[in-house]
Nucleic acid binder design. Sequence first.
DNA 1: CGTCTAATTGAAAATGGATTTCAATTTAAA
DNA 2: TTTAAATTGAAATCCATTTTCAATTAGACG
Lengths: 149, 149
Amino acid sequence: MRKILTNTKTKNQFKDFLLTQGLKSTRQREIILDEFLRAGSHLSTEDLYLRLRKGNPHIGYATVHRTLKLFAECGIAEQRHFGDGQARYEASDCDEHHDHLICVVCGKIVEFEDPRIEELQLEVAGAHGFTIERHRLELYGCCLECRQV
Amino acid sequence: MRKILTNTKTKNQFKDFLLTQGLKSTRQREIILDEFLRAGSHLSTEDLYLRLRKGNPHIGYATVHRTLKLFAECGIAEQRHFGDGQARYEASDCDEHHDHLICVVCGKIVEFEDPRIEELQLEVAGAHGFTIERHRLELYGCCLECRQV
DNA sequence: CGTCTAATTGAAAATGGATTTCAATTTAAA
DNA sequence: TTTAAATTGAAATCCATTTTCAATTAGACG
Ligand SMILES: [Mn+2]
Ligand SMILES: [Mn+2]
Ligand SMILES: [Zn+2]
Ligand SMILES: [Zn+2]
């Protein structure tokens, strides 16, 4: 129920974006958004493209790529880079920000949020005369499961 | 004086690395290391290649690329990615770690270190069952100079 | 409804940094 | 020296991303 409401909100946000930008609502864009919301987070373009192909073999890679960029542009998705050379996308949880723990053994990605770190970042930036627009914090290590084998 | 001593230490570290790995000390590797230490930090392969070309037009891009990777492998340099799609390298300051503030307007990169943040990172990772191997913290914003125009 | 124009699509090509190939050269051990 | 292995550099390849372009489609307007 919560998820469905969120998805509806996200879909509306995308529709509004298309309208205000003079862009068109297409079957492909709807299908891609549906699958993007259904799939888990942190997918690469390739990931999403392959998932889509199963039910929609006609959708091209370029369209998936362009649509993901539209999602990011309109704020319903965020692009991430975890150092494996390919961009990943995840749905934006409204205005909530989070950072990532990445297991270098199994690839698992855990999200976290720590207001104390965020606060210190602001302080450090201020001390150097910077205003922060965005940041990126990734902790690479080994997860519990991978240490137990 | 300080710099010269540090450079000597770095060069020795590289020489030792080559020896222990059964690799060879070559004229190109010496020239590339000299120029790498002379040039400022956060250079891309292209940056270093272009600098080298001025005095050593015979050195190839592939050699610069391979040599920078060797530097990173032996611990005298670290590879960084600041989101512009190309790898950058900087000399390792012994075992001191630092993070980066990046001005999105002029591209300036400021280094900082905050033990409180590092400590909190460990705490957060521990709370999720992770041990940290390395991390990456980049603050993107606007520097003082760029805000004053 | 059609008509029309601009946006969209998808296959293929282009891009660009990173990496590899390979024949010629160089290092350094024997 | 001689010799085997490592290195070099130009060119080729890789691979994710981005662009091109002709065909198709959305949707505004009458
Ligand atoms: Mn996430
Ligand atoms: Mn640095
Ligand atoms: Zn793991
Ligand atoms: Zn600036």
